[in-house]
C-alpha cells in the first residue's frame, strides 16, 4: 500500500471515529488509539501522539458552539484545570517510563469504564446546600432551564479536585481527553447539573491535553505524516457530528458505540497481557 492510500484510509477511519464520538457524546479521541494500534499496527506512542493532537482540535473547534448554548462554567473549568494540568504532567512523564504493555492495559480498562459510564442511567437531582468552600471559590452558576434560570453550587470540592487530577493523569498517559472521568468528577462528585458538566468538560479537555503536548513533542510521539490524516479526520467528523446531533437517534447510537468500545477495550487488555 502506498502512503496516499494509507493516509486516505486513516482519514476516513478517523472521520468515522470523530462522527460517532460527537453523536454519542463519548468523544472521538477515545477510539483513535485502539483503532491505530489494533487495526493499523501503529506503536502506542505514535498512537497517543496522534490522538492527543486530535483531542485538542476537537475541543477547541467545538468551543464556540458550546458557549452559544450557555451551559459551560468558565470559573469551575478554570479552577479544576489546575488539577487536570498538574495530573497531565505526571501522566505524560509516565509514558516515557512505563512499558508499552502497561499503557495498553490501563487504556483497555479506561475504555471499559467509559462504556459503562455512558450506558448507565444519568441521575438529575440538583438538591444542593451552599457549600462553604465552593462559595468562596465562586464554583456556582445558573443555566437556562424550562421557564427560568436554574441555580447550582458545587459540592465536595476536594473530591472533585482529586478526581480531576486523576483525569489529567489519564489524559497525559493515554493521549485522550478523559471526558468520561471529568464528567463523573463534576456530575457525581461535585453534583453539578449534567449538562453543565459535559459542556465544561469539553472546554477543559483542550487545556488538559495541551499540558502533555510539550513532552510528547520532545519525546518524538508526534509523527507529522501520521498525525495529519488522523487530526483532520477527527476534526471534520466531530464538527459534522455536532451539526447532525439534533436529528440523530442518540440512544441506539450510544449503545452501538459503547459495544464497539467494549470490544476494543477487551482486545487491548488481552494484547497487553500477552505482551507482558
Amino acid at each position: 500500500m502506498n502512503e496516499s492510500w494509507f493516509s486516505a484510509i486513516l482519514f476516513a477511519s478517523s472521520l468515522g471515529a470523530g462522527l460517532l464520538g460527537a453523536l454519542s457524546g463519548l468523544g472521538g479521541g477515545v477510539v483513535i488509539v485502539p483503532l491505530l494500534t489494533i487495526v493499523f499496527h501503529v506503536d502506542i506512542h505514535y498512537a497517543i501522539g496522534a490522538s492527543l493532537v486530535s483531542v485538542i482540535a476537537t475541543s477547541s473547534g467545538a468551543a464556540a458552539a458550546y458557549v452559544r448554548e450557555g451551559f459551560s462554567n468558565i470559573r469551575i473549568g478554570m479552577f479544576l484545570e489546575i488539577a487536570t494540568t498538574l495530573g497531565a504532567l505526571v501522566g505524560a512523564w509516565l509514558t516515557t517510563k512505563v512499558p508499552t504493555s502497561a499503557i495498553g492495559l490501563v487504556f483497555g480498562l479506561v475504555l471499559l469504564y467509559s462504556a459503562y459510564v455512558s450506558l448507565k442511567k444519568q441521575h438529575e437531582d440538583i438538591t444542593q446546600e451552599p457549600d462553604r468552600l465552593a462559595m468562596r471559590l465562586k464554583l456556582k452558576g445558573s443555566f437556562p432551564s424550562g421557564g427560568g434560570m436554574q441555580e447550582y453550587v458545587g459540592q465536595r470540592v476536594p473530591v472533585g479536585f482529586g478526581m480531576m487530577w486523576l483525569a489529567g493523569a489519564l489524559s497525559g498517559l493515554l493521549g485522550i481527553g478523559s471526558g468520561a472521568v471529568k464528567v463523573i468528577a463534576m456530575d457525581q462528585a461535585m453534583r453539578l447539573p449534567f449538562k453543565v458538566s459535559t459542556t465544561t468538560s469539553n472546554f477543559m479537555i483542550g487545556v488538559t491535553a495541551a499540558a502533555s503536548a510539550g513532552l510528547y513533542l520532545r519525546s518524538g510521539y508526534l509523527a507529522p505524516a501520521l498525525v495529519m490524516p488522523v487530526m483532520l479526520g477527527v476534526l471534520a467528523g466531530s464538527l459534522a457530528g455536532s451539526k447532525l446531533l439534533v436529528r440523530a437517534r442518540v440512544h441506539t447510537l450510544k449503545v452501538v458505540f459503547s459495544l464497539l468500545i467494549i470490544a476494543m477495550g477487551v482486545e487491548m487488555i488481552v494484547n497487553s497481557l500477552k505482551g507482558m
Binding site: 502512503e3 494509507f6 501503529v42 506503536d43 502506542i44 506512542h45 508526534l222 505524516a225
Partner: peptide
C-alpha cells in the same frame, strides 16, 4: 507507506 510498528522517535 510509512511503518509505525516500531517506535523510533522523530
Amino acid at each position: 507507506r510509512n511503518n509505525y510498528r516500531h517506535f523510533q522517535g522523530e
